[in-house]
């Protein structure tokens, strides 16, 4: 950690770096660390007092929130697979970063190259859909395989030397959540949440009725691009815990589990809740049984999705039974409103 020693001659860039460090230290240690230490003291759960797990839980919460926020727009635009495509682009970005580090005497954080490549891929997918007239899933498939092809070539081009580093990104791991990574994910989460809060109305309009939004004079292409880039940011942020292959799950599964809810804003809230349960339970189980965090989180999320779907079925069946019995009691025909046919 950088020691916090200042003098009058300290250059502004160093000052900025120091203030960022101080902010990270304040949030991670003074606020988050102290809070979890306190909970650990009260409940006797030692796991919460370990700095390693404190970072993992912080990352879990961030992933749950931003995944559900952005995923709510993707799922209802039938763009669920864009997360997977951008994750594979991010993989290519990681490979580019590791390749540059291994080949040239430059130091680039793989995270930065991943973010850049995924953002470019996001805009590329959107342009293919908008201008090239390609089917959406076709353009997603082209960018997905193209990115993975670039990544695989770069990995092999360095005699397999970077393959070890790549493995952690492919499958995700709690061990990769360093202080710096946790701080970056927290920063990205603030940016994503703020962007969705500001652009909520145009995003929801475009999601619900793109032609209507266009007719109302909303710059649809701009918001499509914003959504694609936000997706890239979420994917890169969540990739380290979830792994490239599973990261799309957190954009899709909690949102799908929240679909029976009435009201879009409320559904986003429920999706965040489902995501929080899945990520915190997943991280805990992963730590206790020493199993992959990404896989555990996704399986918990799918279990919650299954419960959600089953409970809707049971509720409808009960409603029909009540309706039938009250109809029989009144000996009058009852007209079903066909409300659950969608």
């Amino acid at each position: 950690m950088t020691p916090l020693s200042l003098s009058a001659s300290t250059p502004p860039a160093v000052l900025a770096q120091l203030s960022v460090d101080a902010a990270v230290q304040f949030v991670l240690d003074s606020v988050w660390g102290t809070a979890l230490d306190g909970i650990a003291g009260l409940t006797g759960i030692d796991m919460l007092a370990s700095p390693f797990m404190q970072r993992a839980y912080l990352a879990a919460i961030c992933i749950a929130i931003i995944g559900a926020l952005v995923g709510s727009f993707l799922v209802h635009r039938e763009m669920a697979m864009i997360g997977d495509t951008l994750a594979h682009s991010a993989f290519a970005g990681v490979a580019v970063g590791l390749f540059v580090n291994a080949t040239f005497s430059v130091v680039v954080a793989p995270f930065v190259t991943a973010l850049l490549v995924a953002a470019v891929a996001a805009l590329l997918v959107q342009s293919l859909v908008d201008y090239a007239g390609a089917y959406r899933d076709t353009s997603l498939a082209i960018v997905l395989t193209g990115s993975f092809a670039v990544g695989s070539i770069l990995v092999t081009a360095t005699d397999g030397g970077i393959a070890v580093g790549i493995n952690a990104y492919l499958f995700g791991s709690l061990a990769t959540v360093s202080r710096l990574n946790a701080a970056i994910l927290l920063g990205l989460s603030v940016v994503v949440t703020a962007a969705v809060a500001v652009a909520y109305r145009p995003l929801v309009f475009v999601t619900f009725d793109e032609i209507g939004a266009r007719a109302a004079g909303i710059h649809v292409t701009r918001y499509n691009q914003l959504l694609a880039v936000l997706t890239a940011v979420v994917v890169v942020g969540a990739m380290q815990i979830m792994g490239v292959i599973l990261v799309a799950g957190m954009l899709v599964i909690p949102v799908a589990a929240a679909t029976p809810v009435r009201g879009f804003k409320r559904a986003i809230g429920v999706a965040v809740g489902v995501g929080l349960i899945a990520t915190t339970a997943g991280v805990t189980l992963s730590y206790q049984y020493d199993i992959a965090a990404g896989g555990t989180i996704v399986l918990v999320a799918i279990a919650l999705y299954t419960v959600s779907k089953l409970s809707v079925r049971v509720r409808h069946r009960l409603a029909r039974r009540t309706q039938a019995s009250s109809a029989a009691a009144a000996s009058q025909p009852v007209t079903a409103d066909g409300g659950d046919d969608k």
């Binding site: 109305r201 309009f205 999601t207 619900f208 009725d209 209507g212 679909t259 559904a267």
Partner: peptide
Amino acid sequence: IGFVPQTVSDTNGAMPITVREAVRMGRYA
């Protein structure tokens, strides 16, 4: 301009949006 699309094909029936949320979009312009 108020645009009303064809019933089913142009709008998203599975989205958990309420009538009021949809009508609010009229003010977004």
